[in-house]
Design a binder for these strands. Structure first.
Lengths: 129, 129
DNA sequence: TGCTTAGTTGCGTAATTATGCATATAATAT
DNA sequence: ATATTATATGCATAATTACGCAACTAAGCA
């Protein structure tokens, strides 16, 4: 980890939606697809998608496509630097983060065989008409 | 610590100069004045001053004026969240951070009675003609 | 061979940020 | 008081970022 990549990493973390996504991934221990994150956070689908791209490019998330769904998870191997920051984010406990976890909990119960099999349920968050 | 202030904090950290300043403050254990930071980092005086302001406003630094000099130090009381991040920054060890520490070391030897008594030595970094 | 669905991305616009230059403020010294 | 010195900041410009909208790709199904 050098100064430049640390600055890039912090820049990727300098957004509320991205912090909330990482918090959910860290606390749930799950890998989550775009539509699950969209429903849990109640942010428009195209914004979720763009924020996820920022996190992947910063090395904060791994991406895996399964069928029509794309799953994101925290990288298995993390530097001490990254681990410390993810721990800090996971420790966030406020109205918003509690709500996010509760919404995700509900959403994860719609999985079948441990996988998401449906799209976005909160249709006003769709990135198309 | 809530999501919004975490985002603000990370935004304040999303700049190389600001990370280098925090790194010096954490590793040296000293409080440092504007001209010492300017000489150590070799960044123009007005930019050092502006970056310091960002860090103070984000709650990452305390400011104390002594005579004509203004000293900055890490806050004595830190949340676990902040402590984890400062530890991570202090652990940075690269060409740049080693050089910064060496330059600061040299600069601190110009103190008398543990205080800076001179201005910027690298005159090309001054914010005036 | 389409049609539907999960996700991505280009474009335009608005907001924010960094930096150089010049100047302002504030404390000390002559 | 006036000049000097340490630090801060207003202004202009350039670069970056976020977001809504719309269109696009890609995978599975009829």
């Amino acid at each position: 980890m050098n100064v430049s990549s640390a600055a890039t990493l912090f820049k990727a973390l300098s957004d509320e939606t991205r912090i909330r996504m990482l918090h959910l991934l860290a606390r749930s221990g799950e890998e989550l697809c775009v539509c699950e994150l969209t429903d849990a956070l109640e942010v428009s689908q195209y914004n979720i998608s763009r924020h996820l791209k920022v996190l992947v490019q910063a090395g904060l998330l791994d991406r895996q496509k399964i069928g029509r769904w794309v799953y994101f998870r925290l990288p298995e191997s993390r530097s001490p630097f990254l681990e410390a920051i993810l721990q800090a984010i996971a420790s966030l406990d406020t109205d918003i983060t509690q709500r996010d976890l509760a919404e995700l909990e509900k959403r994860l119960q719609l999985r079948t065989n441990g996988r998401c099999t449906i799209g976005i349920q909160k249709t006003h968050l769709l990135g198309r008409k």
